[in-house]
Structure formats: C-alpha cells, structure tokens
Computed example of a mutant assay.
Amino acid sequence: MRALIHVIDDDPDIRDSIGCLLSSIDLDFVCYANANAFLDAPNTGQPGCILMDLRMPDMSGLELQRLCATRPQHKPVIFLTGHADVDASVCAMQQGAIEFLTKPVNDELLLQKVREAVALNREQQVEANRHASIIARIVLLSPRERDVLNGIFDGCSNKRIAQRLGISPKTVELHRANVMRKMHADSLASLVRMCMEVRDAFDFDAGDRLDEQAKAS
C-alpha cells in the first residue's frame, strides 16, 4: 500500500513547498490548514507520517500530537517550526515525536526523515496486525481452553493445571492440543512468545476486554 504523508500547517506557502518536495519523490500527500481539518478527515489506514507545525492558531502542535496518540493506527510525527524552542522540543520528543526540525529545513534532511518515518510506520502496522491476529485467536478459545492457556503461560505442568482446574491431566492434554491448534502454534515456545506479545491483554478473567480489543482491531 502506498504511503500517505499528512502536512498540517497554517501557512499556505509552507504547505505548497512541502507538497512540491514530496511530489518530487512520488509520495502521496494531503495538506490541512489547521488541526481540526486533520482531525475531521477520515483515516484511510495507509502507512505514512504527519508533518506538523508547532504553532497553529486553533490548536498547538503539541496538543494535536497528544490527541493523535489516542487515535487508532496513529502515525509517527515530525515537527516543523519557525521558532527554536528547547522546552517544546523536549516535550514533543517525550510524547513520541521522531524529529523536531526548524524552518527553513534542508530538503534532503526532511525527505530522509519522512522516509524513516514511513518505514517505521510500516513496521508498526505489521506488528499491530500481528497482535490483533493473536488476540483474535485467544478470543476464539473456550473458557476452559483459556484457563489451560493461562496455566501454560504460568509455566505449569499438565498435572499442576489439572489440580488447579479440578480436571484430569488427560482432559488438560486435550484442551492443550486444541489451544495449540487454534493459536496456530507449532511449539510451546512459539505459543508462549505469542502470549508475551499481547501480555497486556493476557487476562482471561477479562474476556470482555479481549473481545473489545479484537473488535477494535
């Protein structure tokens, strides 16, 4: 899928200049005159990044950055500013910006940072899709299979899981085989690695939360 660069700046000359620069290397882009215009635009899900001004009339770049971080499939942010501001730069980087550049910015430097941001976002999307797939598989497990998976993740033997759940070791073996098949795990190690990747959602007493995450993905 082609990348899409989002340019947010209240200065039309800056928007035109950046647009021409991005066009020179055949990058798709869309420009916004303010933060609200960007927030109102539909999210296409394309990989890309956001080039945004620090100082804008309706909402500052830092405020917009904080809002963007709460949205699904948020993009890497590159700040462009005509005013060097150490405090703002530190705040932007702490909030996850990948670069803070002062206008006028060198064209080659900006293009390099855009390429890096797009590559990063592609990696982020691959990881997010993988996590969504793992969570979706967990959601398909029966309650008892989730209990067994919980025991496996805790490092328990079949006998210990059976004692914990009040069932026979043979029944645990059957559930364990189903878990391996439904999770598409070719080994115990790969199963545990998958669980580690989504450990923040690895709470089988909170099935509703897992279901919500799967739907949101």
Rank of each mutant, 00 (worst) to 15 (best):
D85G: 00
K113A: 12
P76K: 00
D85N: 15
R66W: 03
V105E: 04
G82W: 10
E123S: 14
Q94W: 08
A97E: 05
P72S: 02
N121W: 11
N129G: 13
E63K: 12
G82Q: 08
N121R: 01
M56H: 11
N106K: 11
I78N: 07
E116D: 15
L120S: 07
R122W: 07
V90Q: 09
I98E: 14
S60N: 09
H131S: 10
V86I: 15
K103I: 06
L64Y: 04
T81H: 03
E123F: 09
Q65R: 00
T70R: 10
S133N: 14
T102Q: 12
Q65Y: 05
T102C: 14
M59V: 01
L120E: 03
E116V: 08
A88V: 09
E123P: 03
E99V: 07
L101F: 01
A132F: 09
H83K: 15
V90E: 13
E116S: 13
Q65W: 04
R130S: 12
Q73I: 08
A92M: 00
A117Y: 06
F100I: 02
S133D: 14
E63D: 15
V114A: 03
D85F: 11
S89F: 01
Q125H: 06
E123W: 05
L110Q: 05
L62I: 14
A117T: 04
L111V: 04
A119T: 13
D85H: 14
E116K: 09
A84Y: 14
A92D: 06
A84K: 07
D107Y: 04
R130I: 13
E123N: 10
D107W: 06
P57N: 09
K113H: 12
L110P: 01
A128H: 13
A69H: 10
G82Y: 06
A117M: 06
L120G: 06
D87Y: 07
V126I: 10
L110M: 05
V86G: 03
K113V: 15
L62M: 00
L101D: 01
L62C: 02
M93Y: 00
N121P: 08
V118E: 02
K113N: 12
L111I: 07
M93L: 15
V86C: 07
G82K: 07
M59Y: 06
E123I: 07
C91W: 07
T70P: 00
A97W: 08
V126Q: 14
L111E: 05
I98F: 04
M59C: 01
V90C: 04
A69F: 04
L111R: 10
D58K: 09
M93P: 00
K103P: 06
D85V: 03
H131N: 13
V114W: 03
P57E: 06
N121K: 00
M59N: 05
H131K: 15
D107T: 08
I98S: 12
H83N: 13
E116L: 09
G82P: 05
D85K: 13
L64N: 02
F79Q: 02
L109G: 01
V126T: 12
H83R: 15
S89C: 14
C68A: 10
M56Q: 07
S133G: 14
L111G: 05
F79H: 00
E116C: 09
H74Q: 10
H83S: 09
Q95M: 13
A88E: 06
F100V: 02
A117K: 03
V126Y: 09
I78D: 10
A132H: 10
T70L: 15
L62A: 03
C68T: 08
S89V: 01
L109S: 00
